[in-house]
Simulated assay, not measured.
Amino acid sequence: MIDPAIILPYVLACLLFSIIPGPSVSVVIANSLAGGTRAGLFTILGTELSMLSMVFTVAVGLEAVMNVVSGAFEFIKLAGAAYLIWIGWKMVRSTGQLSFADGERLPIGRYVWQGALISWSNPKTLLFLSAFLPQFIDLSRPAFGQIMTLGLIVMAVATISDSVYAIAAGQARHLLTAARVRMVNRVSGAILMAGGVWLALQKRA
């Protein structure tokens, strides 16, 4: 059971963590602009499934897991960064055609996979959770249940925050004319490419 006294400061800390734009938020915004709110929300589903796996990793013992797979994190990070840059490059080179018309339905799995890959490609999220969640644990009680509960709270806050970004970007795309689509694609693509470069240059703490 979580001490009710820590809930408010914890939620505020989660909100601060969630609203700061990072690679995951960048891909949510880019997909929402390109494919509408639906695309952004399914991207969020991917990021949250990824975060759930991170929370579980922390709960069962991050240090032991890291000792086994620590070498994989650098590869995951670079693969995710390359993927982010590739998506951005495709958007920059877009012809500007309105390929995201309301009647079109792109594969849901594409957005979920993108969100999960980009989220897991940033090891700092896992490292942050491993340092952040234990600060709110009562050491006199079993840690697993507390960490999972705290993790679900931060996931809920992140889902709400990211959904605001997705809805805002999805609604903004309807205000665009065909002549402006190419510019939006280029800006969104540049954001993704910059996020990919930033991610590739990050060093593990």
Rank of each mutant, 00 (worst) to 15 (best):
F17T: 06
I167T: 05
A82S: 13
R186S: 00
S99N: 11
L16D: 06
L62Y: 14
E63Y: 08
L15Y: 11
A200W: 10
A30V: 02
P107F: 03
P134Y: 09
L175A: 13
F56N: 12
A194V: 13
V181N: 06
I191M: 15
K124M: 13
E104Y: 08
V154I: 15
A79F: 13
D102H: 11
A205W: 12
R38L: 07
M148P: 11
K124H: 13
A143R: 14
A30D: 04
A179I: 11
G151C: 11
S188L: 07
R93V: 04
L201Q: 12
G115L: 01
G88A: 05
A72Y: 15
G35A: 03
I191C: 12
K77E: 09
I44Q: 02
P4H: 07
E48M: 15
V11A: 08
L52K: 05
V28I: 12
V25C: 04
I191A: 14
S161R: 02
L176Q: 08
I118E: 01
A64D: 13
F136C: 04
Y111C: 01
K77P: 02
G109A: 10
E74W: 11
T57Q: 09
L133E: 07
Y83F: 14
L133M: 13
L78I: 15
A82P: 00
R141P: 03
S32E: 04
A72I: 14
V184K: 01
G115R: 01
A200E: 09
Q171D: 02
M54R: 09
L16V: 12
R182E: 09
S130G: 15
R105C: 06
E74D: 15
L16K: 03
T159I: 14
G103R: 14
D3G: 01
L8H: 01
L199E: 05
G80R: 07
T177V: 07
T47W: 02
E74M: 10
L152S: 09
P4W: 03
I118K: 04
L192W: 08
A72Q: 13
V25W: 07
R110N: 05
L49R: 01
T177H: 09
K124P: 00
V181L: 12
A59S: 15
P107I: 00
G115S: 06
S119L: 11
A178F: 00
S99L: 12
T95D: 15
G96A: 10
A194I: 13
W120I: 14
V58L: 10
E48A: 10
R182H: 12
V27Q: 01
G145P: 08
V181S: 01
F42K: 02
T47C: 09
N185W: 03
P123Y: 10
M51A: 14
D138K: 03
R204E: 12
Q135K: 11
L106M: 07
L129K: 07
A158V: 10
